[in-house]
C-alpha cells in the first residue's frame, strides 16, 4: 500500500454511493465531504453516536473506545475514527443501530 493510496468505500444504504477515501482519512469525513449526512458528535471515537456497520472489508480505528466486544463482533465500527485498510462496504446511520444497544438488565451479559 502506498502512502497516497485511496480505498473505495461503498455506502450500501445511501444508494450505494461510492467514495474514494484517502489513507488516514475517516469514513465520516468522507461522507460529509460527499454530502451524505451521517450522525456525528464527539469526533474522537468516544461516544458511539456515529456507529455503523462494516459489511465487508477492514478498517483501523485509532482511539476508538466506544464499542464493546459484543458490538464489534456484531460488525459495528465508529465512522468518525474508522480508516479503511482496503475497499469496504458500510451501512451508516441510526437505522443500523437495532442491535447496537441493549437493556443491560435484560438477558445475560456477553
Amino acid at each position: 500500500m502506498t502512502a497516497d493510496a485511496t480505498h473505495k468505500v461503498t455506502v450500501a444504504n445511501r444508494g450505494g454511493r461510492e467514495l474514494a477515501v484517502a489513507d488516514g482519512e475517516n469514513i465520516a469525513d468522507a461522507c460529509e465531504a460527499a454530502g451524505i449526512a451521517v450522525p456525528i458528535a464527539c469526533r474522537y471515537g468516544g461516544c458511539i453516536t456515529c456507529a455503523g456497520r462494516l459489511v465487508s472489508g477492514s478498517v483501523r480505528q485509532p482511539k476508538g473506545t466506544a464499542l464493546n466486544k459484543r458490538q464489534s463482533q456484531d460488525g459495528y465500527i465508529l465512522m468518525c475514527v474508522a480508516q479503511p485498510k482496503e475497499d469496504c462496504i458500510v451501512e451508516v446511520g441510526v437505522e443500523t443501530h437495532t442491535n447496537l444497544y441493549r437493556n443491560p438488565f435484560l438477558g445475560p451479559l456477553k
Binding site: 464527539c42 468516544g46 461516544c47 458511539i48 466506544a66 464499542l67 464493546n68 444497544y101 451479559l109
Partner: peptide, 9 residues
C-alpha cells in the same frame, strides 16, 4: 465520558 457516552453496561 468514554464510559457513559456509549451506553450503560
Amino acid at each position: 465520558p468514554n464510559t457513559f457516552m456509549p451506553g450503560f453496561d
